[in-house]
Amino acid sequence: MIETEESSGFGFITFGELENRHKSRPPRESRANDAEWSSFHERLRGCPDIYDSFPCIFYIEVDNAIACRFFAVPDRLFVDDKVYQWAWAGALYTEDAYRGKGLATRLVRGMEKTLHERNIGWGGVFSNDIALAIYRKLGFTIPGFAPRYLMMKTIRPLLEYHLGKRKIVKVFDGFYRTLAKAFSPALIVRAYGKYEMEIVDADGLSALLQSTRLHHAQRYHFDSSAERLRWKIGKRSDMSICTVREKKRGRHIGYFITKTRPITEPFGGKYKDFMLMTMMDYGVCSDRADGLGILVSQAVGFFMKSNAEVFELITTAGTEKRIDWSTGLVKAGRGMSFKYSIPSTWNFEEDSKCLTSWELNHFSADAFAFY
C-alpha cells in the first residue's frame, strides 16, 4: 500500500510495492512517465543492497497527478566497525506547471522524515548552488565540494566556447596538440614502467576483490563489494575495468574503472563536442601510501593511448597529497558537491563534517551516474 499524507499530497512507494505493481501502470501516474518508473524499477531489482521495505520513490501529488518526484537508491555506509543504512537521492523533477511553488522543499522534508523514521541516512551529490542553499536552510550538513582534475589532449572545446568556430582556434589547438603529444610518451612510461595494467571483465574484478582486501583511506565509506560494482557496471559498453599490479612481485595495487563517452551537450554548461574519459571508481588493494597515485598514473597512461580527448577525475580521497603535478593532471575548480542528513540517533563525530573524511567518487557517491 502506498503511504500518503493527504493534507500535504506527500507520498512514497517502497521497493516491495513497486515489485507488486511492476506489470501495471504506477498509480495516479501518467503513461508518459511509465517508462521512466519501469526503468528505475528494473535497475533496482539487481541492486544487492535493496530490500522490500526500502522507500525508493517519493512524490508530491496535486489534483490527482504527480507534480514532483524524487528517486532513492539504497547503499550501506561503513564507519569504523559499524554499518548504517543509506539512501542516495537523485533525479529530482518538478512538472513545469508546478515550479516555484515550494513543492520540492516539501518533498525533501517529507523524504527526510520518512527515511529517518526508518533509521536511514541520505545524501546527494552534484547539486547547484541554489539547491545547496535550500538544503542548508533545511538543516542538511554540506561538507563542501570535491575538486575536479583534468587532462586535455585538445583545447578546441575551450577555445570554441570563448572565440567561436574561427580559423585561429584550429591554429592554437594544433599547437597545443603537438605539445600534448610530445609529453605523452613520458606519461605512458611513468604509468607502465614498474607496473602492468590488465583490462578485465566484471568476473575478473570480482575475482580480485574476493582474493584481496581493499584499503580505505577515509573513515566514512560506502559499499564497494564485488556484487555492487557488478550491478553498477551492468552491461555497459562505455566502461573499462582495469587492474594494476607490480611487475616484479606480481602484487596487486588495485583497480580503476573508466567511462568514455561523447559530450554533445554543454559540459559544465559551457564545453561540448569532445570525447570524455572519466575515472569513475578505484580501489586500492595495497597498503602502500602511494597506491592511489599509482592508479591515477595508470589511468592517465590508459587515457593517453585511447581516443578520448579529455580525462576527468573527481575524488575526495586525499587528493592534495596523492595526486600531484607529475601525473599531468591539473585542478579545474569545483567538481562534486556533497550534502547529507542523518538520524539524530547516529551521533556522528565532528570529522563527519569534513569532506576529506568521506571516500567519494562518481561510482560511490552518484548512484545515478551509471544509468
Results as ranks from 00 to 15, higher is better:
M1V: 12
I2N: 04
E6Y: 07
G16L: 12
E17V: 10
E29C: 15
E42P: 08
C47Y: 03
D52N: 15
S53Y: 06
I60H: 09
D63Y: 05
A65K: 15
F71D: 07
D80A: 07
K82P: 07
W88S: 08
A89T: 09
L92C: 07
E95L: 14
R99F: 07
R99W: 08
L103I: 03
T105S: 09
R106V: 00
R109M: 12
G110R: 13
G110W: 10
G110F: 09
E112A: 12
T114M: 06
T114A: 11
L115A: 06
I120K: 02
G121P: 06
W122M: 09
W122E: 06
L132H: 03
L132P: 06
K137F: 05
T141S: 09
I142A: 09
P143S: 02
T154P: 00
I155N: 06
I155K: 05
L158Y: 10
L158H: 12
E160T: 13
G164L: 02
I168A: 11
K170H: 12
G174M: 09
Y176F: 14
Y176D: 04
V189H: 10
R190N: 08
Y192E: 14
G193Q: 10
Y195A: 01
A202F: 04
A207S: 12
L214C: 07
H215P: 05
A217Q: 13
R219G: 00
Y220N: 02
S225W: 07
R228E: 09
R230P: 06
G234I: 01
G234F: 01
C242K: 10
V244H: 06
R245N: 01
R249Q: 14
G250M: 01
R251N: 13
F256H: 05
T260L: 01
T260M: 06
T264Q: 13
G268A: 05
G269V: 08
D273E: 15
C285S: 15
S286N: 02
D287S: 15
R288A: 14
S297D: 15
Q298F: 03
Q298V: 09
K305W: 02
K305Y: 02
K305I: 02
I314K: 10
T315I: 10
T316I: 03
G318D: 14
R322Q: 15
T327F: 00
L329P: 11
K331E: 15
M336N: 05
S344A: 05
N347I: 00
N347T: 04
D351F: 00
H362M: 06
A365N: 03
D366E: 09
A369I: 11
F370R: 03
